[in-house]
């Protein structure tokens, strides 16, 4: 990387900045500290200018704001046009996106428009002594970590939510906020409205009580919910329960569901398949409750309770009342 400047795509919805941006800014500042480079953000949307100051507080030196009605709904084509143009203009060495639904829809288009490589789902970015950047990502459902390097410029990556430390907020920080002209594009894609809101937000939860096929019937979710409430957390589930229609997909933890990294993960009647572990193995403290002492989840647990979840959970609830 010749130019070391960092550009961060500042994802927002309804004017609210996605917390992944604060994590990317934390990383951006850390790299800038070492290289003397600057950190900027691209903020796109309609009526989003207010969010710019928050990005400065979290570490942005410059926020480029693209505020226009035409950007009110997220359309990868229109967003790409403006982000790619900004990259051409300010020529950063590194461009980062969150590995979110929107980030993963947008980043590949921007990268391809610039004929640049893109590394997906990074969990760490390490500056090497020779100035190159190692982009570290899980491979094969987390069995391996692959360190990726890029030969094109800029280096581009999407980064998993909750993999990096967020920067610290400092409202006295000063930064430049620059309004940019917005380019529009003809598209056949029309957003008709919002669908159902997510019932559960397990991605950002501090406590996840996850249940697997140890659950005997859908009604018994009430018991799991009770434990989640007592621990101040949310309910998660393994894929078979989602496939059987016992609980909505928003609750699914794992490779084809949501990746979680709570402070406390409690798995009840969960065996710990590789696809499940891929979505929770980095949790702070892991508790496993299972009647079979040989299951994989016990191997990565801090506390393993060998027993029937239908007995253990009520006893826990009893103990928690005290």
């Amino acid at each position: 990387m010749e130019n070391k400047d960092v550009l961060i795509y500042a994802e927002q919805e309804g004017g609210k900045v996605h917390p992944i941006c604060f994590e990317l800014l934390g990383k951006g500042r850390e790299l800038a500290e070492k290289t003397g480079a600057t950190v900027s953000c691209a903020l796109l949307g309609s009526g989003v200018s207010d969010a710019a100051q928050e990005l400065v507080a979290y570490g942005a030196d410059t926020v480029y704001v693209f505020d226009d009605d035409s950007l009110a709904v997220f359309d990868p084509l229109a967003y790409k046009l403006n982000v790619a143009r900004l990259v051409g203009e300010i020529a950063p060495g590194l461009v980062l996106f969150g590995a979110t639904f929107a980030g993963k829809a947008l980043a590949p288009r921007v990268a391809t428009a610039l004929e640049a490589g893109l590394t997906s789902n990074c969990i760490a970015l390490e500056l090497q002594d020779d100035g190159s950047l190692l982009q570290i990502r899980p491979a094969f459902t987390g069995t391996f970590l692959a360190s990726i390097k890029t030969k094109s410029s800029p280096i581009m990556a999407t980064v998993r939510y909750r993999a990096l430390e967020a920067g610290t907020r400092d409202d006295s920080r000063k930064g430049a906020i620059i309004e940019k002209d917005v380019q529009t594009v003809q598209t056949t894609v029309k957003v008709l409205g919002k669908g159902a809101a997510k019932k559960a937000s397990i991605a950002g939860a501090d406590v996840v009580v996850c249940v697997g096929r140890g659950l005997k019937k859908a009604e018994d979710f009430a018991l799991v919910q009770e434990l989640a409430d007592a621990l101040g957390g949310v309910v998660g589930a393994t894929r078979p329960l989602v496939d059987d229609g016992w609980i909505s997909k928003d609750h699914q933890v794992g490779f084809s569901g949501t990746l979680v990294k709570p402070k406390l993960y409690v798995g009840c009647g969960v065996s710990g398949s590789p696809q499940h572990l891929a979505g929770m193995r980095d949790s702070g403290t892991i508790v496993a409750i299972n009647s079979d002492p040989s299951v994989s989840l016990f191997r990565i647990a801090d506390y393993s309770v060998v027993g029937d979840m239908y007995e253990v959970i009520p006893q826990m609830l009893e103990a928690l009342k005290k």
Binding site: E11, E13, G14, H18, V73, F74, T100, F101, A102, T188, V189, K190, V191, L192, G193, K194, G195, A196, A197, K198
Partner: peptide, 11 residues
Amino acid sequence: ETASGSVIVES
């Protein structure tokens, strides 16, 4: 799917 829920789209 979106971060907060979903959108209905026609194209």
